[in-house]
């Protein structure tokens, strides 16, 4: 991989830091007029998700990381691995629980996800921002109660539990924002 100098650090650039693949979030150039120049860099460790703040001398270099974001179709899980396919090449990838993380709550077969590959293997999986999932368990719906503003927990087909309005019942398909885990409405409406 190419080496990148501090002046080439941009948000989104993937680099290796202390053996860990990282994505650069921010790069601040700090230089007293008569002193030495530094770059104060915020990075996300793509293995752990943790944000790292490291100061470099300007002009230092880091090796690029072989990290790529790909849109893939989610196929299925066998309980140990989750399988994804690149739609153009039909190439399949298996992701372990660490790579899938909390995304497993939102994975529905045939949905498109962002899979981050590191040295060719899935490092992390981001579900679509919005998913449509069926309610498989919730208290019986209170017909006509669309105004009281109350809510109840509902278990979805993927196992996720979200708060939904009282009038919804089992078997209905709802739209959820995966970033917040919040109910957005019935599927097919907005």
């Amino acid at each position: 991989m190419a080496n990148y100098s501090t002046n080439e650090f941009r948000a989104g650039l993937k680099v290796m830091l202390d053996g860990e693949p990282c994505s650069i979030l921010e790069n601040e150039f700090v230089k007293p007029g008569k002193g030495q120049a530094f770059n104060r860099v915020k990075l996300r460790n793509l293995n752990t998700g943790r944000v790292w703040e490291r100061t470099f001398r300007s002009g230092e270099t880091l090796e690029g990381a072989d990290v790529m974001d790909r849109t893939m179709e989610y196929l299925y899980t066998d309980g140990e691995f989750w399988y994804f396919m690149e739609p153009d090449t039909f190439e399949q990838y298996q992701a372990d629980a660490k790579a899938v993380g909390d995304a497993h709550m939102w994975l529905k077969e045939q949905d498109r996800c962002e899979v981050t590959l590191y040295n060719g293997s899935p490092l992390s999986v981001a579900p679509p921002n919005f998913v449509e999932l069926e309610i498989i368990e919730t208290d019986p719906g209170l017909k006509g109660d669309t105004a009281s503003g109350g809510s109840k927990p509902a278990t979805l087909s993927t196992g996720a539990v979200v708060k939904v309005p009282l009038f919804l019942s089992q078997g209905e398909v709802i739209r959820v924002d995966t970033r917040t885990g919040e109910y957005q409405g019935r599927a097919g409406k907005s």
């Binding site: 007293p32 030495q36 703040e53 490291r54 100061t55 001398r57």
Partner: peptide, 19 residues
């Protein structure tokens, strides 16, 4: 967090001053 940074007195003084 400074990794393997090394330098003379002025480097550390500049760093303390600016950061």
């Amino acid at each position: 967090d400074l990794g393997g940074m090394s330098g003379d007195r002025d480097l550390w003084l500049d760093l303390l001053m600016s950061h």
